[in-house]
């Protein structure tokens, strides 16, 4: 990462709620609080890992940045080469332009490519939309794109079913790259792949980042993958960020009790790795009725009375000038 960090995206107080409707009149009876008050900066050229268990809102946050899901509240400032605009307030045409800069790679490569289009057909749409007029030019560009994801040019005339999962995921990456974006939101790009193929895709993504200076938001539940690819990691629990810091710092100096439990629960493929396993009680609560106070308190071994009523704020508890944000009363008191 460069020394002078420029903010590419600045998210302030983002909230994405999904209404639950019931009855004949579709009355709103409650909300699923998928993303609940998240403040986060994404710097140019970095890889930000977004981790958490299923249902913690990591995908919703990713899609809210791209405005595929409209956030209920909050500010999503995007730096358009120095000119900062809120993505939520853009008009349709402006949003189209923004989407040339922000792209997404989906989790399931089997359902994200249209089975009745050839690869060329799937990949030419973004180019058409963003002004590449002639077919010959588009074929040229797509050929080069496929080569940059280590596939032969002539594969563009094949259909998705002819490819394996790993190849399809690489096509998905090629499609995201086709409009020369700055930011790519990768929503579990390797989770559906076999382990021997995961490494191919991960290494490809890291090479592309070096070549093109891309910024990644890497959403995953697999901490070993995120540790390998990320510069910074945000750990989410029930719609909130509980810990946010540099990758190395997070693994060396884990502060939040949830992150500690999460790290200890992961089976590590290393026979010499010895550790205490912290087994959490119970399940993740429903995001419709999140527990009051700190949402983690029913499963936390350190929970006190204060945790049951007061929601902790994300506070910088880092030492030596290191940014280490944690949302926990216990850590906060120790830090003071």
């Amino acid at each position: 990462m460069s020394e002078t960090k420029t903010k590419l995206v600045e998210i302030k107080g983002a909230k994405t709620y999904f209404p639950i409707k019931k009855g004949v009149f579709r009355k709103t009876v409650g909300y699923v609080k998928a993303v609940d008050d998240i403040t986060l900066d994404i710097y140019k050229g970095e890889t930000l890992g977004l981790v958490g268990e299923s249902g913690c809102g990591k995908t919703t946050l990713g899609k809210s940045i791209l405005q595929l899901i409209r956030a209920t509240d909050g500010v999503f400032n995007y730096n358009f080469d120095g000119e900062v605009k809120d993505l939520r307030e853009l008009s349709r045409t402006e949003l189209d332009e923004a989407r040339q800069r922000i792209q997404i790679v989906f989790q399931d490569p089997h359902s994200s490519l249209n089975p009745s289009f050839t690869i060329f057909g799937s990949l030419e749409d973004p180019l058409k939309k963003f002004g590449v007029k002639t077919r010959a030019e588009r074929r040229e560009i797509i050929g080069n794109l496929l080569e940059s994801v280590n596939m032969p040019k002539h594969y563009m005339d094949r259909y998705p079913h002819e490819f394996s999962g790993g190849q399809r995921q690489r096509i998905g990456i090629a499609r995201a790259l086709s409009v020369n974006p700055e930011l790519i939101i990768c929503d579990e790009p390797v989770s559906a792949l076999d382990v021997s193929i995961q490494a191919q895709v991960l290494n490809l993504m890291m090479d592309l980042q070096k070549e093109r200076g891309l910024t990644y938001v890497f959403i995953t539940h697999d901490l070993s993958v995120v540790e390998y690819i990320s510069d910074r990691i945000a750990v989410m629990y029930l719609g909130r960020i509980v810990e946010l810091t540099d990758t190395e710092e997070l693994f060396k100096n884990t502060l939040h009790p949830y992150t500690q439990a999460l790290l200890s629960a992961i089976p590590v493929a290393d026979l010499d790795h010895k550790k205490e396993r912290i087994v959490l009680e119970g399940d993740v609560p429903s995001p419709v009725f999140p527990p009051p106070g700190c949402t983690f308190h029913p499963r936390c071994i350190h929970a006190t009375e204060k945790c049951k009523t007061d929601a902790p704020k994300l506070i910088n508890c880092g030492s030596d000038g290191m940014d280490h944000f944690v949302a926990c009363h216990m850590v906060e008191e120790k830090f003071k």
Binding site: A199, S224, E227, T247, I266, V268
Partner: peptide, 16 residues
């Protein structure tokens, strides 16, 4: 070919 937790960014993973 698998990244191992705790070895950070400097580990080398070799795809098959």
């Amino acid at each position: 070919s698998i990244p191992i937790l705790g070895r950070g960014r400097n580990q080398k993973i070799e795809p098959i």
